[in-house]
Amino acid sequence: MSLIISSPHQHPANSVSRVMLSVVYALIPGCIAHVWFFGPGLLVNMSIAIAAALLTEAWILRLRRRPIKPALYDGSALVTAILFALTLPPLAPWWIPFVGIVFAMIFAKHLYGGLGQNPFNPAMVGYAMLLIAFPQEMTRWSVPQLPELHSLGWLDVLRHSFTGALPTGTGYDALTMATPLDHTKTQIALDQTVQAAHASYKFMGQIAGYGWEWINILFMFGGAWLIVRRIITWHIPAAMLCGLGLFALVAFLSAPATHASPLFHLFSGATMLGAFFIATDPVTAATTTRGRLIYGAGIGVLIYIIRYWGGYPDAVAFSVLLMNMAVPTIDYYTQPRVFGHKG
């Protein structure tokens, strides 16, 4: 008992791995919907990404001469890999998840010093790199799993992933299509109205694309559970959804022919995944209460700007990365008033 141990002398059973595992649990419903609507491709991508993430992490930690076991068990690499896999098209060759996650782990996480030190969200860095480097593979989204359509089973997807071979009699034309966001964007560019664009899209749901709306709703519920469990706070998701929703509402009201409805934007693409799971990554997000509101709102507004005026159909990754850059400044200017100090 010679070691000086500073107070406090008790701790509740909280840990980084508990935080990370809670995030994983909260993702499960959305992932199930993803597989339900777009086939088992997600699970194949996810398995490759997880394995590659853990191996890369272990390898780099060995290079850095850091303890490997606690870092692997903290669950942060697992969460990065899962979030990253969720951004990929279900029908992708094996090297897409592999290259993306290895790049993310090395360049976005460990070159900055590992867990807690990275300014940019690693999953989004991996995704952005792939999108820029391999646009063709990254924009080939699967058609929904519907009885009237040709859908791929487990083995088909696995074979495609590792050999690139598709079942005979099918081609990418039949198996993949643009996402609702992508389709809407191109149609508007062709001077179509939003209504016409949506009418021409084969698989629209009640408020957004077929399947997409359910995936978004379930991610929203998972995120709400995280808020209830106090793993994340409400500030970033609320601010981001408000930023996106309000911007979309103003645009929609001013020019309904060329701007899709706020609901379409809120339940399309990676909106809910981004709001509750990606923007809330504590390491790369703002930490002060006011800062989180600004950070979230900034992401929301940027999403709309890039979705409408930008060159990419979805914009969560770029918006998050852009706001990641602003975090130190936001945190600096939004410090709370310290007890006993004037406001």
Partner: peptide, 9 residues
């Protein structure tokens, strides 16, 4: 063991 700060706030 002490882990890195994840800035959870």
């Amino acid at each position: 063991p002490e882990m890195p700060c994840i800035r959870c706030g």
